[in-house]
Nucleic acid binder design. Structure first.
Lengths: 247, 247
DNA sequence: GCTCAAATCAAACGATCGTTTGAATCATAC
DNA sequence: GTATGATTCAAACGATCGTTTGATTTGAGC
């Protein structure tokens, strides 16, 4: 029997736990497809990656994708959901740890930025290279043309971003919220390029090769914090720094 | 006779000036194709845009693309080359104006940043909306998976970026060049999101709508300059600001 | 008016795309 | 062992892709 009915396409599938029911290599199939798809999507893009490339690398039958995910779109959604849920979970864990330590007081902007963007860099270093691949893919897709995936990503992001923005508003009460929102957006762009664009960077300078992930984190953080606390455009005079009120 | 020989695929085509030779609507065809392709590429991405969509919108025959550009790849190259050459030309004009005014002295970092990234924002506002479309497309493609186009973009960018980096090195002699290089990369990411990701931003906040291009420029510049002059990671202590030596 | 090369056109090419089908295989429950 | 439902499989589906072909139209040069 098919897992998916074509009348109600949904994200969550009826088949959740397969190891408990049918042993053998049933559970591997889904994971193998997801891993292969993630790597190929990051390598070639969503459109340029065919089902046959995915099933070929995964070593499964072509029809397996439609059986397990209902189609290519379903597979794409699941590839993103799998990692993004975990990433945002870690982010919120880090944020809540900060909130507990602060005991009601506004958080330091640097701590908030580190909890959000630093966690992404951690994930990029984790997962034996798979994390960097995925985050590179996500950075591309977020501003990409595929409206279907973009809306899905925004939906998955919404709650987590909202929580962090709320804390940033509290941490920088003197900075207009619109300004903070924009700068958060700029920080996402810088981070996206930091994770995914090391290849692009080296194109400018032939002999450049310092892509140590351990050194990337402080580099990006310095830039992000400098940008976040940069002089406000004109609302408070050109020399006004965007500083939080509480120490 | 065909314009392109399949033995030597080249960027520059034999047909350069068509208005002078054949009047009617010969010259329009190339431009109409480029305009339609640019809009559709930005809308759907390179892969998801078919030749039939392009020729359909342009109102020309399907084979016209292969005739004038030698194929889809040739068309893509020309779409980027047309605008990118003009953008980098304006950037270098702005830089040379600064150099003349400085009379040998190091330039102000803010001036350099403005000449490079501000010119992009100007172009995004120009060209009756076409500029924003193109720059959005370019921001996506630069970190995109298509290696063919990425290499081409890097090649077109190389000289201009090199000139600006040289000036930045002079303006910030106390900052390690690697650091400046990375921050330049981060600035490109922030700018890319600033230009192309306004839609993505509003997904976070339903009622957000302040996308006035005139207000975007000072916003982005404040962020970029703050990031560029942010505290150095650790080479000079955490409190060390990355300031230029000459006033 | 005739020539000829540039340009446009309708039509078709082979390849590959995502998806569907129906039978075969597997592991479990009775 | 047999029935049952989940999973895998080979094969084919129609659609669309980028490209090519060969004839036709166009307009300047003589």
């Amino acid at each position: 029997m098919l897992v998916h009915n074509n009348t109600i396409p949904q994200t969550t599938h009826r088949v959740i736990v397969m190891t408990d029911v049918h042993g053998r290599q049933g559970p591997e199939t889904r994971t193998r497809i997801l891993d292969a798809a993630e790597a190929l999507f990051a390598e070639n893009g969503l459109d340029a990656t065919s089902m046959r490339m995915i099933t070929g690398r995964a070593g499964v039958n072509l029809a397996a994708v439609n059986y397990h995910f209902g189609g290519k779109d379903g597979l794409i959604q699941e590839v993103f959901r799998r990692r993004l849920t975990e990433l945002n979970r870690r982010r919120l864990v880090a944020l809540e740890a900060l909130q507990r330590a602060a005991d009601g007081a506004p958080l330091r902007p640097s701590s908030i930025v580190k909890a959000f963007f630093g966690t992404a860099l951690e994930m990029a270093a984790d997962m034996d290279g798979g994390g960097a691949r995925f985050l590179q893919l996500m950075g591309r897709t977020y501003t990409g043309p595929n409206e279907f995936v973009r809306n899905f990503l925004a939906e998955e992001y919404a709650e987590c971003v909202d929580r962090f923005l709320t804390e940033l508003y509290r941490a920088l009460p003197d900075v207009p919220r619109e300004e903070i929102l924009w700068r958060f957006h700029f920080m996402m762009g810088a981070t996206s390029y930091a994770i995914g664009g090391a290849d692009a960077l080296q194109l400018f300078t032939g002999e450049f090769d310092d892509r140590d992930p351990a050194r990337l984190e402080p580099r990006l953080m310095s830039f992000l914090l400098g940008g976040l606390r940069g002089a406000l455009p004109d609302g408070g005079g050109q020399a006004t720094q965007a500083r939080r009120s509480a120490a």
